Amino acid sequence: MSSKSSDNDDSFEGQSARKEELNGKIKEQKVVLDELSNLKKNRKVYTQQRNSNIFFLADRNQTLSSCKKELDNLKKEIQDM
């Protein structure tokens, strides 16, 4: 019986850690959205190539919409937990 209790504690701790990580990503994404929303129209936006230190010029509106989708996905994932 104690092994089941231990397994439940481990899964709860893992779920709690994942939830904390998701909350951090949500906060980060909200800051990104706020920054992009408050940029002047003539400002340039760059996105980072995955797994690289290379940045490419990107469309501001497209970047904003992809960040909104990412935020929605994170919120949905945390609600499903």
Rank of each mutant, 00 (worst) to 15 (best):
S2K: 13
N53F: 00
K75H: 01
I78E: 06
F55Y: 03
Q15G: 03
D9L: 14
Q15L: 04
V32A: 04
V45P: 05
D59Q: 07
E70D: 10
M81G: 05
D10R: 08
D7A: 11
G24C: 07
S6W: 15
S11N: 14
E35C: 03
F55R: 00
R50T: 04
F56T: 12
K4H: 08
N38C: 07
K76S: 01
K25I: 04
K41R: 15
L64T: 04
K41E: 10
M81T: 14
K41P: 06
F12K: 10
F55E: 03
E21M: 14
N38Y: 04
V32W: 13
T63W: 00
S6Q: 11
Q15H: 01
T47S: 07
R43W: 07
E77N: 09
S16P: 07
N61S: 08
G24V: 05
R50Q: 09
K44G: 02
S65I: 13
F56Q: 05
K76R: 06
L33D: 00
K4N: 03
Q62L: 15
N23I: 09
D10S: 05
L74G: 01
Y46P: 04
S2I: 10
C67Y: 13
S37T: 01
E77V: 09
L74A: 10
S2H: 15
K30N: 08
K44H: 05
Q29R: 02
S37K: 03
S2W: 11
I54C: 15
K75E: 14
S6T: 05
F56A: 04
T47L: 09
N8A: 12
K44F: 04
N23M: 12
L39T: 08
D34P: 00
I26F: 00
E77F: 08
Q29L: 02
N53R: 03
D34R: 04
Y46W: 07
D80Y: 15
E70A: 13
M81L: 10
L57P: 13
K27H: 13
K19P: 06
E77K: 05
K4M: 10
L39W: 01
